[in-house]
Design a protein around this nucleic acid. Sequence first.
DNA 1: TAGATTGTTAATCGATTAACAATC
DNA 2: TAGATTGTTAATCGATTAACAATC
Lengths: 218, 218
Amino acid sequence: MKDRKEISASVIARLPRYYRFLCELQEAGTVRISSGELSLRMGLTASQIRQDFNCFGGFGQQGYGYNVEQLKNEMAVILGLDDLTSAIMLGAGNLGRAVASQMHFEEMGFSLTGIFDPDPAYRGMKLKGVPIRPLAELSDFCMKNRPRMAILCVPQDKAPALVDDLILLGLDSFWNFSHYDIHGKYPQANVANVHLSDSLMTLSYIIKNNGNGGKTNA
Amino acid sequence: MKDRKEISASVIARLPRYYRFLCELQEAGTVRISSGELSLRMGLTASQIRQDFNCFGGFGQQGYGYNVEQLKNEMAVILGLDDLTSAIMLGAGNLGRAVASQMHFEEMGFSLTGIFDPDPAYRGMKLKGVPIRPLAELSDFCMKNRPRMAILCVPQDKAPALVDDLILLGLDSFWNFSHYDIHGKYPQANVANVHLSDSLMTLSYIIKNNGNGGKTNA
DNA sequence: TAGATTGTTAATCGATTAACAATC
DNA sequence: TAGATTGTTAATCGATTAACAATC
C-alpha cells in the first residue's frame, strides 16, 4: 500500500464497486471468497479481479482465496475512507440539499463541515446538522477551518468565478456537479465530475440506437 | 446514420460532451470549427475527434472543417434527442425531487409523464406540472400511457421488487440512481447508472493517493 | 499429499494516436 | 492553384484475458 506505481483510471473506477460488493458479502456473513466466485457475482473475469487487487498487493492466499473482511478493510484504506477530508458544499438548491442529506460522507472519506448559499431563504436552515451560511462568510470560514474539498452544486454560470475563489482560499479538490471544466483551468486540482445530463443523453442513445440489449453503463 | 456498426462504449460516452461543446460554440456564434481547434478546447486529440465523428458519417469538409450548427444537429439526431421517450419517476424523495425539477428532459430525448411515491405526504404535489401519484396507480398508469423508461430514485431495498414490476408493465429502460444491479437480472434492459457514492469514493482515492494532480474523471 | 486458487507473465484484443493521400 | 483539413489506414499503446507455475 506504500510505493505503488501508476494505477490506471480503469482500475480506480472499479474500486468503489469492489468495496460495495465486499461490504455486502461481509453483511451476509461470507468469510472467504475466490476470484472465480466474485467474478460470477460482479460480471467481471476472475483474471481482471486478481490483476486489479494485485495492483495494491497480494491480499489472497493460494488454494483459499480472499478473506472478505480483510480485503474489505484493505479496500477501505486504499480508497482512503478511514482518513476524513474536510468538505464544504456550495449551493443548497434542490440538488445540493438532496446530496447533503442523502450521502453518508463519513463513510466515504469526507466530513461535511460547511454549506453556503446566497439565497436569504435558507438563513437559519441546517442540513445534517450543518448550518447553511451566506456566501459572505465563505472566506472567513475557509481561513478558519481549512476545508480541502468543495462540492459544487451551483448554477452553471456561477461556477468559474467561484472555483477561482475557492482555489485562492486553498481548496484543491472538487466534486463537480456543474458542467464547468475545472481541469481545463486548474490541471492540478483533484476533480470528480458528476454530469447527470450526460448520463441521461447516453441512455437516450442506447434506447434509440441499440434498441434492446444495450450494455453500456455510464 | 442508418446501418452503423458496433459503436464502442468509449465513443458513446464522449457524445454528450461533444454535443455540449457544439451547443456552446453555436451560442457563441461560431460558424465553423476544425478538429484541431476543437481538440484544444476539449482536451482530446484531433485524431480521436475525427475518428469519433466518422463512426457516424463524414460530417466535415476537407480544407474547411466542420459546420458547427450542422454537426450539432447531427449529434442531436445520433443521441436521439429529437425523439422523445416517455419516462416515469419512481421515488419523490430529496434526490427524485432534485432530478425532476432540475433536468430538462425534453431537451434530452425524454418526456416526464408520471411521478410515483408511496408517501402520503406528497399527495396533491406536482413537480414540473407532473402530479406525484401513489404507487397504487402505477399499474393502471402504465397500461394507459405505456412509458418506456423509469427513473429509479427509490431506497436501495425497494429497487429489486420494483424493477420486477416495471419490467412486467412493459418498461425496458432505466436511469438507475440505486445500487441495484439491473443488468445482472435483466441483461436485455437499457440501463444508465448514476452511482453518486462511487464517484465520491473515487475522489477520495484521488485525493489521498495521487495527492495533487489527479486527472481521473468519474 | 492432492486440490484449489492465487500471483504473475505472456497473448490477445481494442482503443488511441500518428500519418498521409484525398479533396475542398 | 496552394493551403488547409478531412477521412481513413497503419502503428502504437494500454487494458483485458488466458495460461500456468508457485504455493497454501
